[in-house]
Amino acid sequence: EVHFESHGEEQAMRVVKMLKKRNLTVEVKVENNKWIITAK
């Protein structure tokens, strides 16, 4: 499981795309203006 924190939507979306290319399940949450990305 991979956790990634991002402060910007643009950066977060880039990471999500990259993770999805690896056929991982990606969950995105926004907490306290931080984008929290979890990949399994």
Rank of each mutant, 00 (worst) to 15 (best):
W35R: 00
I37R: 00
N32Q: 07
I37Y: 00
K21G: 10
E9Q: 11
G8N: 15
V30C: 11
K20R: 13
M18G: 03
I37N: 00
Q11D: 12
L19R: 01
K20G: 05
L24Q: 02
N33T: 04
V28Q: 01
K21D: 11
A39Y: 10
W35Q: 01
K29R: 13
K17Q: 11
K34L: 12
V15D: 01
V28H: 01
V30E: 05
N23W: 15
R22G: 07
Q11T: 09
V15A: 04
E5C: 15
K34F: 08
M13E: 04
G8K: 12
T38A: 03
V16E: 02
Q11G: 06
K21Q: 09
E27N: 08
K17C: 15
V30H: 10
M18A: 10
G8Y: 15
V28R: 00
A39S: 04
E5N: 05
T25F: 13
V28L: 07
A12V: 07
K21E: 11
H3N: 07
V28N: 00
H7Y: 14
N33M: 07
A12C: 15
E27V: 12
N32W: 05
M13Y: 06
N23T: 04
K40Y: 14
K20S: 06
R14N: 07
L19K: 01
V30P: 01
I37G: 01
M13A: 08
K34I: 14
A39Q: 02
K29L: 08
M13T: 04
E27G: 03
V2R: 07
E27H: 11
K21I: 09
L24F: 15
K29D: 03
W35P: 00
K17P: 01
E10F: 08
K29T: 09
E10T: 08
E1R: 11
K29W: 09
E9L: 14
L24I: 06
N33P: 01
T25E: 11
E5W: 10
E9Y: 15
E10G: 06
K34G: 03
M18I: 09
V28P: 00
V15I: 15
A39T: 06
G8Q: 13
T38G: 02
K20Y: 06
T38F: 07
H7F: 14
T38V: 10
N33A: 04
T38K: 07
K34C: 12
M13N: 05
V15F: 10
V28M: 05
E9H: 11
E10N: 07
R22Q: 10
A39D: 00
V2W: 15
K20C: 14
V15G: 00
A39M: 08
E31F: 10
K17L: 14
Q11Y: 10
S6F: 15
Q11N: 08
N33R: 03
N32I: 04
H3L: 12
R22T: 04
